[in-house]
Design a protein around this nucleic acid. Structure first.
Lengths: 147, 147
DNA sequence: TAATAAAAAGCAACAATGTTGCAAAGTGGT
DNA sequence: ACCACTTTGCAACATTGTTGCTTTTTATTA
């Protein structure tokens, strides 16, 4: 399980923000904590539910956007109009995401996971098409629900 | 270009609806015409723009939902909260979609295409994960824009 | 530590998108 | 032409996302 509640998560979060030239604010810390405490991806709505009493909706929108811009989190496409966000584990930088792993959506628990060890395959495209990014989303039953 | 305006499109649409046990109505015909006249996928918003003066927004929502349920169209996930829809070319039936092709989103013209000849690859998942469906969305520059 | 400039958060108002119940209109079958 | 059933349009509402502006917070300097 990835649920560290180690005392230096706080520190780690501070460093992460500082490395990205972001000032350290309550909302940024709180939202990053949610991501660190979570195995899987979060939608805006999830964050609003978990942190919404403390923070304005607008702040959450803007914070997520900032994190995406800085390469701290990445988006995961969905077919239900609720973009998911997850921490970038590869070396992403401002304006350059390098997430080559696939994503898994569980039909049972509805959670979305980054399978960091499964890289996106090469796709052979017809003539004239040039790929810059390949996104793979696999649906099915996850490890926790298979049991 | 795929813009047939052949006289039997109308017939084809009628048959398609009848085969799916759907009554033939103006909005269903119009929306199917848009899909047939279009190389690429459509979002709800696109359809609303092109047919919105004639039909209520609610009707468009309900019609798209009906078509998805019947296996006439399928959804394409996106990371911008605007689900795209495209005609199913494989043999989809009510409750059973069999679209194994990949999707391509052009960064230049912003259109989304079904590459019907490119099948989704096998993905090897970690132990415990079971796949029921694999969705591949490739981003890049399409045939028309490469020129 | 206090003062300050810059950045972020909060607020309010708004825009866009999606949903529901119900009455009116249209469809297919007799 | 009639009838049962389905679909549409309307209205009202809920949810989600955006924008401008004021207040608060942050990081930095003295």
């Amino acid at each position: 399980m990835h649920h560290h509640s180690s005392p230096n998560i706080e520190q780690e979060i501070g460093l992460l923000l500082r490395h990205n030239n972001l000032s350290i604010t309550d909302s940024r810390k709180k939202i990053l904590q949610l991501f660190f405490a979570q195995e899987g991806a979060l939608a805006h709505g999830d964050i609003e539910k978990k942190a919404g009493e403390k923070f304005d909706r607008v702040t959450i929108y803007r914070t997520l956007q900032t994190f995406v811009d800085k390469g701290i989190i990445h988006t995961i496409p969905t077919a239900d109009n609720s973009i998911r966000y997850a921490l970038c584990k590869d070396a992403c930088t401002e304006g350059h995401h390098h997430d080559h792993h696939i994503h898994f959506v569980c039909n049972q628990c509805q959670h979305t996971f980054c399978l960091d060890d499964v890289v996106t395959p090469e796709i052979k495209l017809p003539k004239g098409y040039n790929a810059t990014h390949v996104e793979v989303v696999v649906e099915g039953v996850c490890k926790n629900c298979t049991a």
